[in-house]
Simulated assay, not measured.
Amino acid sequence: MSSSDGSAMPTRRHVIGAAGAVACGAALAGCAAGPPGPAVVPPGVKGQVVAKVADVPVGGGMVLTKWKIVIAQPTAGVFKAFSASCPHRGCAVSRPAEGVIRCPCHGSEFDAVSGKCLKGPAEAPLAEFALRVEGDGIVMV
């Protein structure tokens, strides 16, 4: 097909493809903008007692494989919860020890207080989940 000036008219396929490319670009730009939102607690765990305070050692922690959550107690009475999936490739991290959460797959290390990546190849922190202590139980909020 050609127009009156002799140039080729775009086909419907070209127009739809270009529109799709623009939409994808806009979506990707939106994903890259700004800090990530709050982590969403895995289904079925919100409001549940996931561990007993006595089961989480000071300076260490535990991994709750059922929900892919790691609980740390970096200092006495301070409890933190993070995703137990390494942001690098999704491997399960090990329980916290000496203030560090390690990924056994590729050697990434994360701070047990903040979830911040201390050593790569991971670049992003572990997603943090909110929790509270109720009596002798740790509850996900």
Rank of each mutant, 00 (worst) to 15 (best):
M1S: 14
S2V: 08
G6L: 01
S7A: 14
A8Y: 10
M9A: 15
P10V: 02
P10G: 09
R12T: 04
R13D: 14
H14G: 14
H14E: 15
H14I: 10
V15A: 15
V15Q: 12
V15T: 09
V15G: 15
G17S: 14
A19L: 13
A19D: 08
G20K: 15
A21I: 13
V22F: 14
V22Q: 08
V22A: 12
G25S: 09
G25R: 06
G25M: 08
A27H: 10
A27E: 07
A27W: 08
G30W: 11
G34R: 01
P36Q: 00
G37M: 01
P38C: 11
P42H: 05
G44Q: 13
G44A: 10
K46S: 09
G47K: 07
G47S: 06
Q48E: 15
V49L: 06
K52R: 14
V53M: 00
V53I: 01
V53R: 00
V56P: 08
V56W: 11
V56L: 06
P57F: 06
V58Q: 05
G59I: 03
G59F: 09
G60R: 11
G60E: 10
G61H: 10
G61S: 04
G61V: 07
M62N: 07
M62E: 11
M62W: 15
M62F: 15
V63I: 04
V63K: 07
L64Y: 05
L64F: 07
L64R: 08
T65R: 15
T65A: 14
K66E: 14
K66Q: 14
W67K: 05
K68V: 08
I69F: 04
I69T: 06
I71R: 01
A72E: 03
A72P: 06
A72Q: 05
Q73D: 08
Q73M: 03
Q73S: 10
P74I: 07
T75I: 13
A76H: 00
V78F: 01
K80E: 10
K80I: 13
A81K: 03
F82Y: 14
F82G: 00
S83T: 11
S83P: 10
A84F: 11
A84V: 02
S85K: 05
C86K: 03
P87N: 03
H88F: 07
H88W: 04
H88E: 03
R89S: 12
A92I: 07
R95A: 09
R95Q: 14
P96N: 01
P96W: 11
E98Y: 13
V100Y: 02
V100I: 09
I101R: 02
R102A: 15
C103L: 02
C103T: 01
P104R: 07
P104E: 07
C105S: 09
C105Y: 10
H106N: 04
H106P: 06
H106T: 02
S108I: 00
F110S: 02
D111I: 04
D111C: 11
A112W: 10
A112I: 05
V113N: 14
G115L: 00
G115V: 04
K116W: 11
K116Y: 12
L118C: 05
G120Q: 00
G120S: 02
P121N: 08
P121L: 01
E123D: 12
L126Y: 13
A127K: 06
E128A: 12
E128D: 04
F129V: 09
L131H: 05
L131D: 02
R132A: 12
V133G: 14
V133T: 11
G135V: 01
G135L: 00
D136Y: 01
D136H: 03
I138E: 00
I138G: 02
V139N: 05
M140T: 11
V141P: 04
